[in-house]
Design a protein around this nucleic acid. Structure first.
Lengths: 168, 168
DNA sequence: TCCACTGTTCAAAAAAACTTGAACAATTCC
DNA sequence: GGAATTGTTCAAGTTTTTTTGAACAGTGGA
C-alpha cells in the first residue's frame, strides 16, 4: 500500500519508533527547531544501541546532509554524544537523557544569546531616548525602556533557576 | 534617499520607534511568532497613546490583513487590550505590559496545548510498548517512556512556578 | 434604506526555513 | 600512494509559513 518513499517511514521503523519520532518532531517544533532534529533525537532516544549517521539516513529516510547537520546541532546542544566507538570506523551516537543537561544546552545555545544581544540593544535604546527633546515624551520612553530592562534582568535570573528546578 | 516603500519604515517611524519595533521583532521570533506580531506589539509598546488598526497599517506599512490577524493573536495572548474608545468608531489598542500576564498568556496559548497533547500521546505509546514481546526490549522501552512521562510532569509543574516567579 | 467606514477572511503571492544531493575533504586500510 | 569509506559543505530545490489584497460582513448615521 505504501510507496517505497512514503512519508511515514513504515518500512524502516517499528510502530513504537514511529510514534516516538513523531512525539519528538512535535516537541522540537515547539522549540523552533527543524523536523529532522526531532526525528534524529527521537530515534536515538528510543534505540537501545547507539546509531551511526548512516543508520539515521537509512531508517529515517533523510539525506546525509540533514543527518550531518542535525547531529551537529544536537551535539552543540549537548543533546547527543558520541558513543564508545569500538572496532568500527564510523561514529556512533547516543542521546543525552537527563533533563537538566538538555534544558541547559537549549538555554545556552538558543536563549542566552538573544538575551545578551537584547541587553546590548537596550543600551543603544537608552542613548536614542536621551535625544528626545520633549520632556513628557522622554519620561514616557524612559519608563518603557526601564520596563524592558527589568524584563531582561528577570529573564537572566530565571533561566538558571529553571535549570536548577529541572535538574531534579 | 529612501524609496517610498522602503523596508525600514524610516518615513513613518522615529528612530526610537524603529529600534523598539526591531527589538520586539527579534523577541517574538525567539518565541516562534511572526514578524508582524513583533512589529505591532513593539509599536504599541512604545506609543504613549493607543493606536487603531489603521494607525498600525500606516506606520508599519503592513497590510490590513496582517494587522487584523496580528491584533487577534495578540488579544488571544492577552498581550494587547482595547482602549476606552471615546467618540470614535474605530477601536484603539494598547499593550499589556506586565510580564506575568504576558508570560501567562504565552504559556496558556502556546505551551500548555503541546504539553497536554504530549501527555495523551504518551498513553498511546505505553500501549504500543506493551505489545513488544522481547522482555529486554520491552523493559528498555518502558524505561524510556517513563522518562518521557517524568519530563512532561515536570514541565507541567514548572510552568506555573515560572509564571509565579515572573509575576514580581 | 443607502452610504461610508471599520474590520475580517482567505486564496494566492511572497518570503523564510528546511532538505537534498553532489562535490569535496578527511581518514583508514592495503 | 591509491582505493574505499565516512562525514561535511553549500547552492539549488522543496516545503512551510507569512503576508498581501480584494471581496465581504457588520455597523452607525443621515
Amino acid at each position: 500500500m505504501d510507496s517505497p518513499a512514503s512519508k511515514t517511514q513504515s518500512e524502516n521503523l517499528s510502530s513504537i519508533q514511529q510514534q516516538v519520532v513523531n512525539f519528538f518532531v512535535d516537541g522540537v517544533r515547539v522549540l523552533g527547531l527543524p523536523r529532522s532534529i526531532g526525528e534524529i533525537y527521537g530515534l536515538l532516544f528510543i534505540s537501545s544501541e547507539p546509531l551511526s549517521l548512516d543508520d539515521l539516513v537509512q531508517k529515517l529516510e533523510i539525506s546525509k546532509g540533514s543527518a550531518s547537520q542535525g547531529l551537529r546541532t544536537l551535539k552543540t546542544l549537548g543533546a547527543v554524544r558520541e558513543a564508545n566507538n569500538i572496532n568500527d570506523r564510523r561514529t556512533y551516537y547516543e542521546p543525552a537523557t537527563d533533563l537538566k543537561r538538555l534544558v541547559g544546552g537549549f538555554i545556552r545555545e538558543q536563549i542566552r544569546p538573544h538575551i545578551d544581544s537584547g541587553k546590548s540593544k537596550l543600551q543603544q535604546l537608552q542613548e536614542t531616548a536621551a535625544l528626545t527633546t520633549d520632556p513628557t515624551e522622554r519620561a514616557f520612553l524612559n519608563e518603557r525602556i526601564e520596563r524592558l530592562e527589568s524584563w531582561m534582568k528577570r529573564g537572566g535570573q530565571v533561566l538558571p533557576m529553571l535549570q536548577k528546578i529541572l535538574g531534579q
